[in-house]
Design a protein around this nucleic acid. Structure first.
Length: 963
RNA sequence: GGGCCAUUAGCUCAGUUGGUUAGAGCGCAUGCUUGAUAAGCAUGAGGUCCCUGGUUCGAACCCAGGAUGGCCCA
């Protein structure tokens, strides 16, 4: 005899509890690589691009990562954000081709290659080194490309652009030709950041600051008798004969003192002369900024005390302005020359003495001050950081090693006021990590103020869309503060600056005609697997000279090649020409997207070369991202152990969880990343994954023939789709304005508050218990499928792996030829105006009513009957939904009552136990059917079960039993 | 040291032109469910809106100063 339990179990087999193939667990690290391979085999990207052919282009131009080293989570963020925006536009039908690129020349690779192969830069043949560097760069490109593809991105990764390609090198040289022709380039002497280890000039972007301990010294520059008289006069004082008078300077680079030619003072700051008396009767006068003179005296006292002496001091006369000191001079402490007092606004009064040691050969400010006052540019240091012969008595010494000697000599001659070790932030070479120096060398420059270039750029910055909006101001500052752009490098791995030196007059010239000829030679003779620019090294100069080329100065026709290469920031600065223009993509690009460091880097270099040679910015929109920091908000470093590599991250969590994390954070600011955080994102991922699973399970037996068109759906299902439309519009708007985090918020909110806790809750009864082919069930399933399909498309740019996996579980007929999730169309949810807003209003009314039911004490849901009290207008509107209102509330019975006092949008609900008995099949509490065969079932279930028996003998017969 | 940016619940984030009791997801606790079950639903606890001062009838929001962190520079 059957019990109640077996009875229920038996009816269970008549319920539509169907399962799709989609597993609850993601197993992402294990399964994702196969999906990557599948996308490539199926040529999903190429097919979608072909399907979109002829439609408007949308171009995200890829900023090239440097082909050196493994990728970190910052790279992950960069690639995934780009991928998401490219995919949105692909799904939306745009010709959104994406050509990734790599930055492959430059010192870091040259250095890494030398180190990797154990080679000596000074001994290896340049052509051989260049071949090795090429191999090495291609090696890294391969490693990085594998990591990037593992992230699940789409793009033309079989044909990336590379700065080592012949076409790219030709474009670099051609751009130099354009700049030379426009008069934008010049060669000049310049205090340049110089790495003595790598023996090259460095760009600002190749510098990193870190702490360094330097000798901090205060030095007397003592006046001669004549100079003393002048100084006393300037202070309006009578000369004190035979007194020692000195201007005291402060420096942390004693080795630059041999190049000292001046002392800079702040023209509008007061300067004081202080009389210092020693206990042994000696005395001196020291001059420094009034704000700092007491500090100088304290240092004198400190040094005196160390020697067992004491001092006293008092102010002499009144302070005078720095401008009154300009033109005076004092003697260099150990060389036989004067040091001139000059004025400079940059002199600061917070530290030091207010009297700044000035060596035009060893500092940018110093150089400019030197130019203004006509000072000689002394440069007694060679490329390897040793003093040259002119720098007697220190010739041959390495500069940092010479510090000690110089300090000792200063002490010996009484010029040293004080010395102590000083830790400060100091520029270091980004590659070899050694401290760099300023040294004046002859370099090629792009002139920022010729042809009003700076002004022209500034005028066009506001025409670009900057996200976040402060980017505009940031870029304006970058342009305003951009120094003359030094584009030459004295290294081997790069594209040559094709300048020639006239043998007749030794004049160096960068000629547009020569440069264009060089580009032509590259294109004609460059081999696919070799460096086209090797030709500059291997071919005779005549190969590159246009017919009849002669020196403009002396008419000479014999030339030598100059052996400078171009700054790699200039190379990546012309990607907009080399890639967009060469590959049939429109110019300017729609979007550049990089880390916020690129305002100074790639955003700026592209902007400059574009405005200088093509007249306008290379991009319509620029998006910048923040930095990935650790769970505590600290910068990630391999050395501090909080570093997460991209490969490791994907191996541990799966790419899709990390992709979801990217969407879950506000990427324009710093992004925190840590285990706890990723576990939390993992939970969100599982939620979303379950929603895809549930929607698939609910629709697994739906076929395209049974798919109910939207206009014939049940009213309650149309309401759900109205809400979907609203979400789709919000999401698409967020995507197209690059607000990925808003996409995430909108989709998660819809998933949680509309689907999981509301719509899916109400769909379970009609889908599980309803007549399998009945109109109600098919309508519910059709709406669920539309939601599923839309969610796949809306989520595909973020959860690429998961949406594809889910899409592959859709029955063939419903996929309708859309083999991949990336064949779907982005749903725009076209608005239907007031009709829709009415529907959404009604949807929200139902959600609030359902909340009342779900939160009720004691009995809930199908154990309940509901009485809804609504205004007459609202009752009428709810009436149009028929049984949908009861379904939405997930109750067994519902009656509608007019309450004239009720607000139009705030109906009241009254709950009570539903009359009848719990139907063991549908679990609703309803009157018994009174059916002879199935007396415990409700009427609807009895009918359904009877129909099943009639339809199929396979269905197990359920015998009536007496409890 | 300077410019820019950020700071709201344990975590990630919302927070409309200044306006009642500052919200959501995750996590946590409790209950329900066992026909989404390595799931689902509900309820609840949890906040010095970085600090200080100012403007205002009223400040998470506006102003000034500061702290911490980040990027770019010096």
């Amino acid at each position: 005899m059957a019990t109640n339990e077996t009875l229920a179990t038996d009816y269970r087999s008549t319920v539509n509890l169907l399962k799709s193939e989609f597993p609850m667990r993601g197993d992402l690290p294990k399964k994702e690589p196969a999906r990557v391979a599948w996308w490539r085999e199926q040529r999903v990207y190429e097919k979608r691009l072909a399907a979109n052919a002829g439609n408007p282009q949308w171009i995200l131009h890829d900023g090239p990562p440097y082909a050196n080293g493994n990728m970190h989570m910052g790279h992950f963020v960069n690639r995934v954000l780009k991928d998401a925006f490219v995919k949105v536009h692909l799904l939306d039908g745009f010709d959104a081709r994406f050509v990734p690129g790599w930055d492959m020349h430059g010192l870091p690779i040259e250095f890494e290659t030398l180190k990797h192969l154990g080679l000596d830069f000074h001994k290896i043949d340049p052509i051989e080194l260049r071949a090795k560097c090429r191999e090495r760069a291609i090696h890294w490109l391969g490693i990085q490309r594998d990591t990037i593809l593992r992230m699940g991105v789409l793009g033309d990764y079989e044909h990336p652009y590379r700065t080592i390609d012949t076409e790219f090198e030709a474009t670099i040289v051609e751009t130099l030709a354009d700049l030379a022709e426009a008069g934008q380039m010049y060669k000049g002497l310049r205090a340049t950041l110089w790495c003595t280890h790598d023996e090259t000039a460095l760009a600002e972007a190749e510098i990193e600051y870190k702490d360094k301990v330097s000798p901090s010294i205060y030095v007397r520059f003592t006046a001669t008798d004549e100079q003393r008289a002048d100084l006393f006069t300037r202070f309006g004082l009578a000369e004190v004969a035979d007194a020692r008078v000195a201007v005291v300077i402060w420096t942390t680079t004693p080795w630059t003192l041999p190049a000292n030619v001046a002392i800079a003072v702040k023209p509008d700051a007061p300067y004081a002369m202080q009389h210092v008396s020693y206990d042994d009767g000696a005395s001196e006068y020291v001059i420094a900024a009034e704000a700092l003179v007491d500090d100088v005296v304290a240092r004198i006292a400190s040094t005196a005390a160390a020697a067992g002496r004491t001092i006293s001091s008092q102010r002499t006369g009144h302070a005078i302005l720095g401008s009154a000191l300009v033109g005076a001079s004092v003697r260099h402490p150990f060389l036989d020359r004067d040091s001139l007092l000059v004025g400079a606004d940059y002199v600061e009064l917070e530290t030091g003495t207010g009297a700044v040691h000035t060596a035009p050969g060893h500092g940018v400010d110093d150089f400019e001050t030197g130019m203004r006052f006509g000072l000689p540019v002394l440069n007694p240091v060679d490329g390897s950081g040793h003093f040259v012969a002119e720098a007697t008595p220190y010739a041959g010494l390495e500069i940092f090693a010479a510090n000690e000697r110089i300090i000792a000599d200063l002490a010996a001659c009484g010029a040293l006021v004080q010395e102590h070790a000083y830790t400060h932030s100091y520029p270091h070479c980004w590659r070899c990590k050694n401290p760099v120096i300023f040294r004046s060398t002859a370099q090629w420059f792009i002139a920022m103020d010729v042809n009003r270039l700076r002004k022209r750029i500034e005028a066009q910055v506001p025409d670009v869309g900057w996200y976040p909006t402060w980017g505009e101001n940031r870029m304006l500052q970058m342009i305003e503060n951009h120094p003359e752009w030094c584009v030459s490098r004295q290294r081997t791995w790069g594209t040559p600056i094709p300048a020639v030196i006239c043998r007749g007059c030794n004049e160096t010239v960068l000629d547009a005609g020569v440069a264009r000829k060089v580009a032509t030679v590259f294109r004609e003779r460059g081999l696919p697997d070799a460096n086209a620019s090797d030709l500059w090294w291997t071919e005779p100069i005549e190969t590159f000279l246009p017919a009849g080329f002669a020196c403009a100065s002396c008419g000479g026709t014999a030339f030598d090649k100059e052996k400078n290469i171009v700054d790699i920031w200039f190379e990546s600065g012309v990607t907009h020409r080399a890639v967009l223009r060469q590959r049939g993509m429109h110019w300017p690009a729609d979007l550049y997207l990089e880390g916020s460091d690129q305002y100074r880097g790639w955003f700026r270099s592209n902007l400059i070369t574009a405005v200088a040679t093509l007249g306008s910015p290379p991009y319509k929109n620029v998006v910048s991202t923040g930095w990935v920091v650790d769970a505590n908000g600290r910068a990630m470093h391999k050395s501090t152990g909080n570093y997460i590599g991209a490969d490791d991250g994907m191996q541990q969590y799966g790419a899709d969880v990390l992709r979801l994390w990217v969407a879950s954070v506000e990427f324009t600011a710093d992004m925190r990343l840590g285990d706890e955080l990723l576990k939390s994102i993992g939970a969100v991922y599982r939620n979303l994954r379950n929603r895809f699973k549930m929607l698939l399970d609910l629709t697994v037996d739906l076929t395209v023939e049974e798919l109910v068109p939207r206009e014939r759906l049940e009213p309650i299902d149309r309401l759900a789709l109205a809400r979907l439309d609203e979400v789709a519009r919000d999401v698409v708007a967020a995507y197209t304005s690059y607000r990925l985090h808003d996409v995430y918020l909108a989709l998660v909110d819809f998933d949680t508050s509309d689907l999981s806790s509301f719509y899916i809750e109400m769909l379970k009864d009609p889908v599980y218990s309803g007549e399998r082919d009945g109109a109600r069930r098919r309508s519910a399933q059709s709406a669920a499928f539309v939601i599923f399909e839309s969610l796949c498309a809306l989520f595909a740019p973020i959860l690429s792996f998961t949406t594809e996996e889910a899409w592959q579980c859709v029955p063939e007929s419903l996929r309708a030829g859309r083999a991949s999730v990336f064949d779907l169309a982005l749903p725009h949810g076209s608005a239907r105006g007031t009709a829709e807003s009415g529907e959404i209003e009604l949807w929200n009314v139902l959600k609030r009513l359902r909340t009342n039911v779900a939160a009720s004490d004691g009995e809930r849901d199908f154990a309940l009957a509901a009485k809804v009290y609504a205004s007459e207008a609202l009752a009428t509107r709810l009436g149009t939904l028929g049984d949908g209102v009861r379904e939405a509330l997930v109750v067994s019975a519902l009656t509608m009552h007019v309450d004239a006092t009720a607000n139009d949008l705030e109906p009241r609900v009254e709950l009570s136990a539903a009359p009848g008995a719990k139907c063991p099949r549908c679990r609703k509490t309803l009157p018994l059917s009174g059916d002879a065969v199935h007396p415990t079932l409700c009427g609807s279930c009895a009918t359904i079960v009877h129909a099943l028996h009639t339809a199929s003998d396979d269905v197990k017969r359920v015998e009536p039993t007496v409890p």
